[in-house]
Amino acid sequence: MVLGTYKQITLGRSTDKQIQGISQDGGIVTALLTFALDEKIIDGAVVAGPSDEMWKPNPVVALSSDEVMAAAGTKYTISPNNWVLKQAVRQYGLEKVGIVTIPCQTMGIRKMQSYPFGVRFLADKIALDIGICCTENFPFESLKTFISAKAGVDFDLVEKMDIGKGKFWIKTQDDLISFPIKETHGYEQNGCKVCLDLVSELSDISTGSIGAPDNWSAIQVRTDIGETVFKQAVDAGAIELKPIDEGKFGLEMLTKLAKSKKEKAMKVIDERKAMGLPVPYKGSSEKEDPLANV
């Protein structure tokens, strides 16, 4: 199963006009976190918030809907959210923490929950893990380089970045510039090349734009916790749903991209093994399902 195990797959978007205006796609992450905060399902959330530098995120503990909203929108560079988890529990004294994670961060959290060697009284305080789709990530200098040098856009003027329809999009006040996503290859961080997970297979709820029309998000509800929170959010009207298109631009696209990420990674994993380099995952010949995240 290239999309991991899930209970439900659907399209969704936030019903809140304000969230729609500031979010990346359907505003699902922001909608879920603000709902969970308002309903006291969580008492704080670790998000990729703003820093002193434009487009360089800084992991922060958001305690209010406003702080969550200030972190809305995708930043295409590294935000070590897991780092701040301990701060959320120890300094902020949170008992129920929400967190937004990309697949590798989800994996770090789940490993810590199953094997909490040095992590004391934290594993059980993670109340909601919202995973986001991730094809690859860019070091901040990489992002700056391909936007300013390659696309020729003044980095400070960028209003929104997006990946969709095979292209990297840069929106400024006057312009919408794009270049093929293929041309970002070589700028991504190397660790992403062995990653077998596009859709945050281990999160409670995962979401992303792949397979969804503009301003909607595709959502997979995965764990029991995820199912409970998601149902509450939908019943309360925070999120509206419509069925995902099974066809070429819907589920088929999502499946295709998840599979191709896995296939590419397996090639790199096998090559690394042949060279004697360490890699935490099994080689093709060592596992039943050659595309499983193991």
Partner: peptide
């Protein structure tokens, strides 16, 4: 070449 900056 394995680090992904997750912060764990």
């Amino acid at each position: 070449a394995l680090c992904i900056g997750c912060g764990t």
